[in-house]
């Protein structure tokens, strides 16, 4: 049963990744745009148990690492996403503040995106990956976080419903 659920979830992650790479990346959005895969993974992680969240983070991170636009070594996004999703899953599971609160969910996702991107810059600097001038990094960080804040409420019901369908759980939203 769990294997079937995980396979379905993995296919879903791949579809979202495909949408990100073939559609979302076509738009020249100001401020760096948004990553639908990052939003999806974080929403998924908040709705899941920490272990499932970490597995989701591993898969999404691996896909992000395999993206041609990824400038860091393969494994950097994977490592960050495992950690971020585990924390998101830990803070999200059974959290009364987030349950039935889409606004809290949205802010949590946007804040998580902001911190993940900061972590990416910091670990990138340690691994010798250049991210650009301080001003440009700041603009991209704020841009991606703001876009996440705008896009998450639109996508949240869809992602939440998909999670509900695969894991046969009642959505907290």
């Amino acid at each position: 049963m769990l294997i079937r659920q995980l396979s379905l979830a993995a296919s879903l992650f791949f579809v979202v990744y495909l949408i990100q790479e073939s559609v979302i990346n076509q738009f020249r959005l100001p401020g760096g745009g948004f990553s639908i895969l990052l939003i999806f993974t974080l929403v998924w992680a908040i709705l899941s148990t920490p272990e499932i969240a970490a597995l989701g983070g591993f898969l999404a991170g691996l896909l992000m690492d395999l993206s041609q636009s990824s400038s860091g070594p393969i494994g950097q996004w994977t490592l960050l996403m495992i950690a971020a999703c585990y924390v998101a899953g830990y803070l999200g599971s059974g959290n009364e503040i987030l349950a039935g609160n889409p606004l809290g969910f949205t802010f949590f996702t946007a804040a998580a995106t902001f911190f993940i991107e900061i972590a990416y810059v910091v670990t990138g600097a340690l691994l010798g990956v250049q991210a650009g001038s301080f001003g440009q990094v700041l603009i991209t960080l704020l841009g991606i976080s703001l876009w996440t804040l705008v896009v998450t409420p639109i996508l949240l019901p869809i992602f939440s419903r998909l999670h509900e369908l695969i894991f046969n759980t009642r959505s907290p939203l």
Binding site: P50, E51, A54, L55, G57, F58, G61, D65, P73, I74, G75, Q76, T78, L79, I82, A83, Y86, L127
Partner: peptide, 22 residues
Amino acid sequence: GRGRLLLISLIVTALFLITLDL
């Protein structure tokens, strides 16, 4: 315990990938 083992395995895999790539 299983959860912790899974998390550690995933982190080790990620570190392994970084090392291989570098």
